[in-house]
Computed example of a mutant assay.
Amino acid sequence: MKIEINNNKNQIWVVPESEEDLWIIMLNLKRGDFIYTKVLRDISLKDSKSKERRPIDIKLRVEKTEFQPLTGKLRIFGIIEEGPEKFGVKGKHQSAYISIGQKIIIERYPKWDDRTINKFKSSGPKGRALIVAIDYDEYTISLITSLGVYQLENQTLNISGKDSPNREEEIEHVLNEVNSRIINYISKEKINILVIAGPGYLKDRLAEKIKINNNKLKVIVDNVSNGGFAGINEILRRQTIINVLREFTTILAQEVLEEFMKNVVNNSDMVAYTLKDVYYAAKIGAIDKVVVIDKLLYNINDDERQMAEEIIENAEKTNAKIFIITEDSLIAPSIEGLGGIIAILRCKIPKDVRNLNNI
């Protein structure tokens, strides 16, 4: 992300260069902040009942934000604080779309703190991986980014049985088609790691085709029981693959969830979940690792959002490991069922202590 900061530190000029940058902007914008940007708005024409859509420069007071992965856009809802007087837009509700490569100014009073500025400075893509799970019945292609795991496509394969004289021809056609799809994704998504998994020899043949014109790409081939989405889930739990994909937040968050579930059964005093429970643990500096769904940090409920923000701030102060995931991530439903946030603790907090603190 390209940024410039004014002397008073209340305005930052920002140019997001990746979806990760847009996500960081969303997480750190608060209600009451301002953005200066250009929007399209229907303007009433003089002496006419008709309207015309025109681009206008505005200062927007932020009310809420919305980010949808893989769209390359961040949507910001708010109220126009400043705009062309002749159009009478001041005080009107407006949404603004921020795209990759678009320069905007974000403003906060009295100023942006150094911690948030450093988050902007350190933002950027952390690499992207493609995972393919294929067998003779179906294949699934999923994308892994630092924001989560996203299914790009799933297709059923209609390959004839082993006795069919057309079987080999059909297999070759399928492999060429899937290879073409993968090559397109590698180019479009700037993939640097490719994992191909499946139960049989099909995955090996596919890997050989891809390697012909992508000799610099890191390609990993592994066995799983099934193709399709079941195969994706299986490979993401394989330790050898986890070790390779450790740079992705979503993979590390998955490991924390697995550790959490083991402790729930065997050592429940060493974990916390739900906002109130984790808030107390963060307040006394007891958090070692925390996983939180991003929507808690831009929650429309002020009290819940403030609690989530304070959890992250306290966790940062005590050097806890923090993993913020999107609600589209594979593990998000599990985290959601636990209140949207979980934590592994540094020390035990017995239930009677938590009860005394109204948790």
Rank of each mutant, 00 (worst) to 15 (best):
I12H: 10
I342P: 05
R53W: 00
Q306K: 14
Q254H: 10
S99M: 11
E52C: 02
K49S: 04
I312H: 07
A133Q: 09
N28G: 05
I106Y: 11
F323R: 00
M1G: 11
L27D: 01
K321T: 10
I193M: 04
K59L: 08
I171C: 00
R305G: 04
V14S: 01
E310Q: 12
V244N: 09
L245C: 03
K126M: 09
F229R: 02
K119D: 13
K126W: 02
P199T: 11
L330W: 03
P350Q: 02
H93I: 11
E82R: 09
N263H: 13
D302T: 10
V195A: 06
A230E: 14
G101T: 10
M261H: 05
I235G: 01
Y280N: 06
Q94T: 03
N263M: 13
T250Y: 01
L236M: 13
L345Q: 10
K218E: 14
E138Q: 10
I284W: 09
E20L: 04
I287S: 02
A320V: 03
I322C: 03
R237S: 07
S329N: 15
F77N: 14
H93A: 11
E309S: 09
I344F: 06
T65Y: 04
I117L: 14
Q94F: 02
I344C: 11
K348A: 15
N154K: 14
L29W: 08
E170K: 11
Q306H: 11
L217K: 05
R31E: 15
D113K: 14
G227S: 10
F323M: 00
Y298C: 03
A96W: 06
V291M: 03
Y109D: 12
S146F: 03
N7T: 08
N314H: 11
K73Y: 06
K59Q: 14
K218W: 02
D328I: 05
I24V: 15
P84S: 05
K92N: 13
L152N: 08
L22H: 06
L202H: 04
D137Y: 14
I3H: 04
I241G: 09
I284M: 03
P350R: 02
A332W: 12
D137P: 01
E107I: 11
I58G: 01
I335V: 14
K119M: 08
K162T: 00
V278G: 07
I193Y: 13
A129H: 08
L143G: 06
Q254V: 01
F67S: 01
T37L: 10
I287C: 06
I79N: 14
I134K: 09
E258F: 10
R354V: 03
P199A: 08
P165W: 02
E336Y: 10
V221E: 10
N243F: 05
I349S: 09
E138M: 05
N314P: 02
K162D: 00
K162M: 00
K90M: 07
V271A: 10
V39H: 07
N357Y: 03
F67N: 08
K203G: 05
K86I: 12
